[in-house]
Design a protein around this nucleic acid. Sequence first.
DNA 1: CGGGTTTGACCTGCGC
DNA 2: GCGCAGGTCAAACCCG
Length: 286
Amino acid sequence: MAMAGAGDWPFAADEAYADSSAIFAELGWANGLAVVDAVGELLPPLDPPGELATPPPPPLDLPETPAGSSADGAASSCSTDDADGGKPAAAFTEAASKSLTPGKKRARQPRFAFMTKSEIDHLEDGYRWRKYGQKAVKNSPFPRSYYRCTNSKCTVKKRVERSSDDPSVVITTYEGQHSHHTVTFPRAAGFSHIHAMAALAAAPFSAHQQLYSNLQPPPPTMPLAATTPASSSSLLQLPLHCNHELQVVASCGGYRSSSSSPPASVLPVDKGLLDDMVPRAMRHDG
DNA sequence: CGGGTTTGACCTGCGC
DNA sequence: GCGCAGGTCAAACCCG
């Protein structure tokens, strides 16, 4: 299918998007991605740990993002077109270009998806979102919710749905890059990683890639106390889909926001990124 | 009253 | 050409 140049990634991004749960199940759960419960315990066995450490290097020759996201000058990096010239991607790809004035195709934004074991669907991530739609998803008893960043200048969107395979897993997909800083800063450690993911979602690909290469098993303990009913927001593992090229699997091991320092394997990743997205105060890294 | 959510309608592309 | 499915719009509604 399209993904010719996507390295060894076993699936096409568009496919993944069309039925993320299935893909996650097939690719994620079964293919080496870590899932950690609320205490940082590795749930399902992974493939050789090396998998995470040496993911297929996404070929990154990302053409600049055309218009579309004027606000995110941050140069989103995904290719915006089915360069493959092959079939026009499924739901996910084309969907992004829908609802547009005829003749115009919306520039697709980088996408960043991750799974979180949580009881609540909409996890706090430091940004404010406004729900603009909800749709039933085929082959899934759970609806998919659509959110948009409330910042008028920000075009970031977010999709939230539960995995049909594992209802306790929430699949969150960010699209685009925030053109502003967070408006709220979650205080609970449990949100740290979510926030970090949100930040990652807004990061240039290089950051993703770096994170990717820094992946390591999550820390032994992961106090994910949440300030909301989300009693068990746990860690994620994430196949990452950015259109049909950018794919990153990131395991952002939640780390203690107090006392102990975050795992070196996680933080260094985004010194710069987090520096930009997350206030030092909440990073406890210095 | 302003901001956010809900929900049905509508649009668009794809597969048959 | 038709039906299906995903994504978005927008009016109505809710809540602080």
